[in-house]
């Protein structure tokens, strides 16, 4: 196999609250290749979200290396990190994280605004993404006017706005009932199958895990097991 696009080597993340040090990751190593579908599992507090934040350039490790396409993110400036988030990575969060004052359409356009993409192009892209997630009819609605499942589909459309290769989904169905959760998962699986996205998903759902090519199980900031 060719070189991994994401590579974590002996990654430590230690949070400090007052004098108390909380190690969320303790020397975790992991590599992910282009086009893989990886499920991350583990108990609450095991460091899953912390891991996702490292990969997504939202945070940098206390110690160790996080390589994205061969570059160590610790050497990135604030603006490099933002550029990487804006161009290479799409996030899907458990809480959807849409901007409440913007419509579904505007939420999908937002990442493209920060990349300076002209309006006409943005509009086309946002429209096609919303129709892909089956929400063309709801473009003009604000998040507050949408159901949880609908909001998460808007968030999926948003994560695809800048055509990232990597999609990071942190418990995307955690706030949804099982039926809508299934719909959202089918959508994410479709991204992997049809668009060849590299997908890392934090989940407690065994069915999702079944689909995944690899399952990494975390405990106390370490990968303690790999199924498959």
């Amino acid at each position: 196999m060719n070189k991994p696009i994401i590579e974590l080597k002996d990654v430590w993340k230690i949070y400090q609250i007052g004098h108390v040090k909380i190690p969320a990751l303790r020397g975790l190593s992991l590599s992910i290749h282009s086009g893989e579908f990886i499920a991350i599992m583990g108990k609450s507090g095991s460091g899953k979200s912390t891991l996702m934040n490292m990969v997504g350039c939202l945070d940098i490790p206390t110690k160790g290396r996080v390589n994205l396409y061969g570059d160590d993110i610790a050497s990135f400036t604030e603006s490099d990190l933002a550029q990487t988030r804006g161009k290479k990575i799409g996030f899907i969060f458990q809480k959807f994280n849409l901007i409440p004052t913007l419509t579904a359409f505007e939420n999908v356009m937002l990442p493209m605004i920060f990349q300076g993409i002209p309006f006409e192009e943005r509009k086309k892209k946002a429209q096609s993404l919303l129709s892909m997630v089956g929400l063309s009819e709801r473009s003009a609605h604000r998040p507050g006017e949408l159901s949880g499942g609908e909001q998460q589909r808007v968030a999926i459309a948003r994560s695809l706005a800048i055509d990232p290769e990597i999609i990071l989904a942190d418990e995307p169905t955690g706030n949804l009932d099982s039926k809508t959760g299934k719909m959202v998962m089918d959508l994410i699986i479709k991204l992997h199958k049809e668009q060849k996205k590299t997908i890392i998903i934090v989940t407690h759902d065994e069915d999702v895990a079944k689909y995944a090519q690899k399952i990494k199980v975390l405990r106390d900031g370490l990968v303690i097991g790999q199924k498959k």
């Binding site: 603006s79 933002a82 988030r85 996030f91 994280n97 937002l110 990442p111 920060f114 706005a161």
Partner: peptide, 11 residues
């Protein structure tokens, strides 16, 4: 935080 996660730079 959301805007930053979708690529907004500090500036």
């Amino acid at each position: 935080g959301v805007m930053k996660s979708v690529g907004a730079r500090n500036s």
